[in-house]
Design a binder for these strands. Structure first.
Lengths: 343, 343
DNA sequence: TTGAAAGCGCTAACAG
DNA sequence: CTGTTAGCGCTTTCAA
């Protein structure tokens, strides 16, 4: 009782038209503008479609409409030993969001990892994708400016730091507010000496997060002097920074970290020194990675609303590709704090 | 000095042909069968292509050749609180492997998470993808049988457990051998009572891994009685199992775990009881997840060669789509042991 | 070795 | 509301 024999080629518009006793165009209309058809015709066509198991050929449709309904996402190699599985969660969220809109996500990598725009051009020129999602936030690489310059249609996860001329749609998470959440939480638990372990000064994202710590500490009437460390996004740096801070005159009783990776380093130092996280010293990370969740003790962390980021991005994508005007092309979402055992 | 004005439509074969002073067909040949052209003609065409920044339109090519050069990969929601970032690493590896072959990876999700084949049909019928990569290993869901039945072209990460009729290409990792590695390692460090913390009996992957523990222990002349626990793939189960095993008459001095998630649970129990992992009790996980790497102390874990798995799968994909015969459609790769502080 | 003609399956524009 | 015509950009015949 198979609907079509295996060796037979797939049904086309013409097949369906014949089956339903209408013209090819009517079938096309049934698919794309069903309201143009009389209900009974529509039903008849729909029935034929179901009976034959017909799906419109995408290549033909793409050729005709000059759209692929694909969005490209460049995935760069995951960094081992880094707690950051942010990308994983984001990809899931993005694929989920695109599903309802008829778009699909095409993954690609750069031949040349150093070139921020490698891979984009070819995919676009060959009409393989309609647009891109770029994740600037992720490592702070300024792909956006290059892409915008070349007229590549894209939406970005991550705001165009400092670039006031940018006009592409973007969605970002308010890292500063997330850190403020962490500071409030710790101060609420009685901590007065709350340290910051962050990235280098030239990391704009890192500085934004840090400003949340500085400002909130001051608002609480607390000092930030001698309580800040800056370095790379590695476990080793976190461990080193914690040692230095703990050895200072007035050792901090709590650490707010720019990332879970760094926080894991802080935890390692605490462990080495026999300090119990959550009891002797509090630690808060950033990203709410899997590693944070399964660590013992589980790490309190700032959680980015990636699912919502994805939804907003896909919304912008729709506007962009439909050439709808985008009045306010930037959106900042607020993170939450996942409170766990380390605080 | 722009190569083409922004408002102008992309160059086509005809544009290039005119530019080079040859026919469209010659340009097509230059692209697909360059050896048919005279060197000087080829050079002239190539130059025109470069000058115009031409890339063949994929939709047109796909329509004509009835191939999309896309492979589908269904991503299911990541499970929170589980250490398993295996999928993330695998996706990266796959995208990397496909790059050189001219294929791209298309991501999709199922509307209905429960239906093991939801989403595949539509993508295939509409010729959106040429084939699929399915990751049976990941959760042990038997997609393969369903897909094979429907004549869907696919390659699988994960062997067709028990299904002797399966004829699709697959690549798998020898979990049993991985666990044997772990047992050897622990016994070599003087452990005699090595426990197993695994999955339910009906998880074929889990049982395969467990057999490595059972057999190897016996080969070392060691007993396995009262040293095994079975349950779900959660941190809580790992913690519970460790408690029960430690409370038994002859407490184990080492734990081999079916997954990092479970191992994290074991570590939690050790922590609660003041037992130092790697000193008082050894623990080995499976998957070498990020969480294992950044944990304090870092978790020894069996590492699957996902990069190699991806390469082999893409090789099979090439054979499959070129209708080349595949003499031996299964390949088993051997994992390695990442030794860290917990053992 | 190069060129001309045909057509993949679809949708946009128009005519009925 | 339905049908006819044309053509998207490419590759696959087949001739020259």
């Amino acid at each position: 009782m198979s609907r079509r024999t295996t060796t037979q080629s797939a049904p086309t518009l013409a097949t369906v038209a014949e089956e339903a006793g209408v013209s090819r165009q009517t079938v096309s209309n049934a698919l794309n503008s069903p309201d143009l058809l009389r209900p009974d015709t529509l039903a008849r066509v729909q029935e034929a479609i179901d009976r034959l198991g017909y799906s419109p050929n995408r290549a033909a449709r793409n050729l005709r409409t000059r759209a692929s309904h694909l969005v490209g996402l460049r995935v760069d190699p995951a960094v081992e030993d880094s707690a950051n599985s942010l990308m994983d969660r984001f990809v899931h969220a993005l694929v989920d969001s695109t599903r309802t809109t008829g778009y699909h996500v095409l993954l690609f990598t750069a031949d040349d990892q150093e070139d921020p725009v490698d891979g984009y051009d070819e995919l676009l020129r060959s009409a393989a994708v309609d647009a891109f999602v770029v994740t600037d936030t992720y490592r702070g690489t300024p792909h956006s400016a290059f892409l915008a310059e070349r007229g590549v249609p894209f939406v970005a996860f991550g705001r165009p730091w400092g670039d006031t001329t940018a006009s592409h749609p973007w969605v970002d998470v308010d890292g500063r507010a997330g850190v403020m959440l962490a500071v409030d939480h710790l101060v609420g638990r009685g901590h007065r000496r709350v340290a910051w372990v962050g990235w280098q000064k030239n990391a704009l994202i890192g500085e934004d997060r840090r400003s949340g710590w500085v400002d909130r500490m001051h608002e609480h009437g607390l000092s930030t002097t001698q309580l800040s460390a800056r370095g790379e996004d590695t476990l080793e740096f976190g461990a080193r920074a914690a040692k230095a801070l703990l050895d200072a005159d007035q050792a901090p009783t709590a650490f707010v970290c720019v990332s879970d990776t760094v926080a894991m380093g802080v935890l390692r130092t605490l462990h080495e020194r026999g300090l119990r996280p959550g009891q002797d010293v509090a630690v808060v990370g950033f990203d709410d990675s899997i590693a944070a969740q399964v660590h013992t003790p589980a790490l309190t962390s700032v959680r980015q609303p990636l699912e919502q980021v994805a939804v907003e991005l896909v919304g912008f994508l729709g506007d962009l590709l439909a050439h709808r005007p985008i009045p306010e092309p930037g959106k900042v979402l607020t993170p939450t704090l996942s409170v766990r055992a380390t605080s």
